[in-house]
């Protein structure tokens, strides 16, 4: 029993220390004097790597999810002869929840793991240390562009996801289930609010992008310098950021529905 309490205390202390450490790490990499002329190309490069490479998987997943949602929604709504509301159902669930959350999970799997592995490898092979010895700060040169890129890219990916998912749902509803296109769109239009739905979706995207890149970058940077360390860091980057995203989603949804 005492052992258990001790272990609990030990682990929570360890967790708190990690949290504090990662916060300091975050501040250290973000609170830099920006050198625009040098930073900007680095940022663009990372946006390309992180964003464009995640684009394909996000578009494909969005299309499938939109289609499945339309099929399932139609199946249920039909029982209440409310299938005209399908557009509304589709848009609200995608824009409010599925878009940001699934996008963040895919982003963690695609970009987060890549970031963690890349930085972990650079740390292990002393590339970051030798960069430091050349008077170049790795936090500024390597970490911060990846971080900002994730932050900027996620909202855009979420918007793309939302659009593609709705289009996928539209294809199924109108072309396959033969619903009326006009009803589909007009019901959707009258129920989706720009501020409470679309803007919140983008805000969630920003928050999730922040969390996923933070976790991935931190895990990579502090990976133990060996192959096992990197593989653990990659796994942890994906697992932790997924869990954090889902937890954060609950909080954000509560705040947003709470009439904020």
């Amino acid at each position: 029993m005492l052992d258990f309490v001790q272990m609990l205390g030990h682990n929570s202390l360890k967790f708190t220390r990690r949290l504090g450490g990662s916060f300091c790490f975050l501040c250290a990499s973000l609170l830099r004097w920006p050198r625009w002329r040098r930073s900007f190309p680095l940022l663009i490069e990372q946006i390309y790597f992180i964003g464009v490479y995640s684009l394909l998987i996000i578009i494909i997943s969005a299309a499938f999810i939109g289609m499945v949602l339309a099929l399932q929604g139609h199946n249920t709504l039909e029982k209440f002869s409310a299938s005209s509301q399908l557009g509304q159902l589709l848009a609200l669930s995608v824009i409010r929840e599925l878009g940001p959350v699934i996008c963040a999970l895919l982003f963690a799997g695609r970009a987060g793991s890549a970031i963690a592995a890349e930085i972990g490898l650079m740390q292990t092979t002393e590339q970051l240390a030798s960069m430091e010895m050349m008077g170049v700060d790795p936090l500024w040169r390597i970490i911060s562009p990846r971080f900002w890129a994730g932050f900027y890219v996620m909202p855009l990916l979420v918007l793309i996801f939302d659009m593609v998912a709705i289009l996928g749902g539209y294809l199924i509803s109108v072309d396959w289930l033969a619903l009326d296109a006009g009803t589909f769109w007009s019901n959707m239009q009258s129920s989706v609010d720009f501020y409470t739905d679309v803007v919140n979706s983008v805000l969630k995207g920003l928050a999730f992008g922040f969390v996923v890149t933070w976790v991935s970058v931190y895990q990579g940077y502090y990976a133990p310098p060996n192959a096992e360390g990197i593989s653990h860091a990659t796994t942890r980057a994906v697992v932790y950021s997924s869990v954090f995203v889902l937890g954060l989603d609950l909080i954000l949804t509560a705040v947003m529905l709470g009439g904020w």
Binding site: T125, E126, M131
Partner: peptide
């Protein structure tokens, strides 16, 4: 950073940027 630019350290592994 300035001081580091005046010293070169060659690591045990070459540590080239891959």
């Amino acid at each position: 950073n300035n001081a580091r630019c005046q010293m070169g350290l060659l690591f045990q592994e070459a540590a080239l940027f891959t």
